[in-house]
Amino acid sequence: MPVLTKEQQDYKKFSKSKRPKPPLLKNMTMAFVVGGTICVIGQVFLSFFIAKGLTPSQAAGPTSIIMIFFGAFLTGTGVYDKLGKYAGAGSIVPITGFANSIVSPAMEFKREGYVFGVAAKMFVVAGPVLVYGITSATIIGLIYYLLHML
């Protein structure tokens, strides 16, 4: 980071006082309601598959697939970004948001072609989540394995 001069630091303090605060309470309420609703829908599918005879860990697979489908479908139809505007983290954090983060760049960069556009840019938002998600899962897995060896 660049080192700021005294004048720049003073301006930063001054401008901070002028900046509107994000409406935290409203944002959190919306995130809770929308995020919660998405999870309830997921739970309905999970319970349905368990009732049909799958074990809970088996039922997680088809439930995720259905929720990813919904996320991708609502992105393609232009609904998910409008939902995200109000819901914020409530629609970003669930797996539907993950689908949105992959489908939206794929759509956006289609005009640059299927190789350098769709395929290359598909993970431009979700890529860091995958990299650090898989890396931390591997490290935790190793620690878990080593602890069990003791």
Partner: peptide, 12 residues
């Protein structure tokens, strides 16, 4: 970001 990404814009 891509147009269809469901992110929230800052008040600024």
């Amino acid at each position: 970001f891509p147009l269809e990404l469901g992110n929230q814009r800052k008040p600024t």
